[in-house]
Amino acid sequence: MNNKTSIAIVGAGIVGATTAFYLSAAGHAVTIYDEGTGQATSAAAGIICPWLSQRRNKQWYQLAAAGAAFYPTLLHDLNEDISHSAIYRQVGTLVFKKTPKLLTKLEKIALNRRERAPEIGELSILSPAEIKAKLPLLETEQSALFASGGARVDGALLTKKLVNAAVSNGADYFAEKAQLTVSPSGTYTIATPTHTKSFSAVVLATGAWLPEILQPLGFSVDIRPQKGQLIHLEVEQETENWPVVMPDGEKDMIPFPNGRIVIGATHENDEGYDLTPTEEKLTVMLKEAAELAPSLAKATIKETRVGTRAFTSDFAPFFGEIPESPGLYVASGLGSSGLTSGPIIGRILTQLILNEPTDLPVSDYPVARYIQKNELEVKQ
């Protein structure tokens, strides 16, 4: 592309915000569109610890591990001190399993992965007493695997910092719904309630809403929404240095500074794009957390957050340029690992647009598997 290309970024979640930041830093004319509805990143508080996942998809692990390794670089590029950052902090991760045998098996897996991913840090199986010393609220008779390289990240703070940095670099930002059209000559136009503008390239980072923007153009998109709910609690202790906790289940515990603890999230596949907090789900989630940390049952609920994740039918992410649509880039299907893999995907999209070598092979995450031009459109 030429020295100063006009590029639209639709969606300012973790992928879009990262892409906007790096493209604007490279001197391109970037315009960001995001109406804000249901954005997964703004609701999310995440654990960066993919090495202790036993998900068997090699491409997913490759992406997630690269994403975890990329975080210090991202924060450095944002002039953020990771040793004192409210956005990202390596506090370590505690992982519980049903039996000591499964815990030992996980430790062996992690030790093997650490040979290629030294970011894992120190690994050790901690006794209940050692666990309580690290996180006083926990009441357990189980041991847990501790990885010192595990980190927490505040998705809302991170995307805000990325967008603000992009705007400081000269990017424009519109908190509006964007509609994409393509001319017969291949020109991309974005229309909003207030203006219409043409672009040389467009990045669609709209998560679960990707079908909404592509289907009018004649594409079928393999994406479905998943609802996720989080509870933000407040306790009296100082929680800044407490590790994040991954129980044997889906409801994680993520301590942040100043007595804030995030519990969640739910994984609801049948709620569509509904963003309404549900008392039943929140009550069950809090009850599960209190089984490990009983005092949380009496903690103050400060707020609940609800977001919509994007999943493909095989639960794999995809990103890159849409085939036969030069200049039209997409990323979606990140699911519950969006905060881990989102930044590296944004960086790779930037590399594609700048015609640079990519950090990972894009062919491992093929767009064509999930987005196809409808046959009727092709015949026309």
Rank of each mutant, 00 (worst) to 15 (best):
T19Q: 03
A40Y: 12
T192C: 09
P361M: 04
A316E: 13
L94F: 07
Q39A: 00
A66H: 09
I223G: 05
W51I: 09
E212S: 04
F146L: 07
G11H: 03
G218E: 12
P247A: 03
K281F: 09
D34Y: 12
I47R: 00
P343K: 12
A331R: 07
L214A: 11
S24R: 01
F70M: 15
K132A: 09
D154M: 08
I344G: 02
K58E: 10
Y173C: 13
A331H: 04
L111A: 04
V10Q: 01
N269H: 10
V362A: 13
I371N: 10
I231D: 01
F21E: 02
K134W: 04
E139Q: 07
I371K: 08
T187F: 02
G338V: 06
T181F: 06
K134F: 05
V367C: 05
E234K: 04
K251P: 01
S83H: 08
G67A: 10
K302G: 00
L339A: 05
G338W: 01
L296G: 04
I125L: 14
L233N: 00
G207Q: 05
A25C: 03
T181E: 14
N269E: 14
A165W: 07
A69Q: 01
H84W: 03
Y173E: 07
T350M: 04
K101A: 08
P216G: 13
P50N: 11
S24V: 10
L230I: 11
P216V: 15
V244G: 00
V362Y: 13
I322W: 01
T181P: 12
Y88Q: 06
L376R: 07
A178I: 14
R55W: 04
K105F: 06
T159K: 03
R113G: 02
A69H: 01
Y61P: 06
I7F: 03
P317Q: 04
T358H: 08
G186V: 14
W60C: 11
P118D: 04
L63W: 02
A68D: 05
D252H: 14
D314H: 14
T340Y: 07
I32S: 06
G121M: 02
F199P: 13
S341H: 09
A175F: 00
Q179E: 14
A43Q: 05
K373N: 07
A310W: 05
A129M: 11
A171G: 00
L162V: 10
V362Q: 13
V330C: 04
G259I: 15
A316W: 02
V182K: 04
A331W: 03
E377D: 05
Y33F: 12
S185K: 14
P225R: 13
L52E: 03
L138K: 08
P216M: 11
L126R: 05
L137V: 15
T283F: 01
A86P: 11
